[in-house]
């Protein structure tokens, strides 16, 4: 009886060491391979060859908005112009685009049909183009994106200086 009791109370000792070793190895592997990915998004542009050259006004009969971004020799932004008129900054550009296409949104609205054609100097820093695309393609209101113009294209690049 005494023997039985002592057997029961004897704990079966599992050797934890290898398991803990492996577990820690795994943990350090996952910790080290963790890559913090910054959130990124895309601006979709559809530009088949041939149509980009001389703005083909198709069946929609909505003339494209031409945004001209000119550059200083060092690549910084020299000036913005919309349809030939100078624009102060990107906020102003957005205001002018809104006043042009109106407030209506939806599949058949003016904003949906209108196309923006970007005409940029060769040496212009690309960040400015993204700012311009941001300005014309929408606004953020209360954390929600309100889309403006989705169709964006570029004029063909001029010969590099």
């Amino acid at each position: 009886m005494a023997r039985k009791k002592s057997q029961l109370s004897d704990k079966i000792d599992i050797n934890m060491t290898p398991m803990i070793d492996v577990v820690f190895q795994l943990m350090s592997f996952f910790m080290c391979s963790l890559k913090i990915v910054a959130p990124e998004g895309d601006f979709d542009i559809r530009m088949p060859l041939g149509k980009s050259a001389s703005a083909v006004v198709d069946d929609q009969q909505v003339p494209p908005i031409r945004v001209k971004l000119s550059a200083q020799p060092d690549g910084s932004l020299a000036g913005i112009a919309m349809n030939g008129n100078p624009v102060a900054d990107f906020n102003d550009l957005q205001r002018k685009v809104v006043s042009l296409v109106g407030k209506g949104r939806g599949p058949d609205s003016l904003a949906d049909k209108t196309e923006v054609e970007m005409d940029c100097d060769y040496g212009l820093k690309y960040a400015n183009v993204v700012r311009a695309i941001t300005a014309v393609s929408g606004t953020v209101q209360d954390g929600q994106i309100v889309e403006l113009i989705k169709k964006i294209k570029f004029t063909p690049p001029k010969a590099g200086k």
């Binding site: 959130p39 998004g41 895309d42 601006f43 979709d44 559809r46 088949p48």
Partner: peptide
Amino acid sequence: EKFALRAK
């Protein structure tokens, strides 16, 4: 002909 300009 489909392009996506990526931004942060």
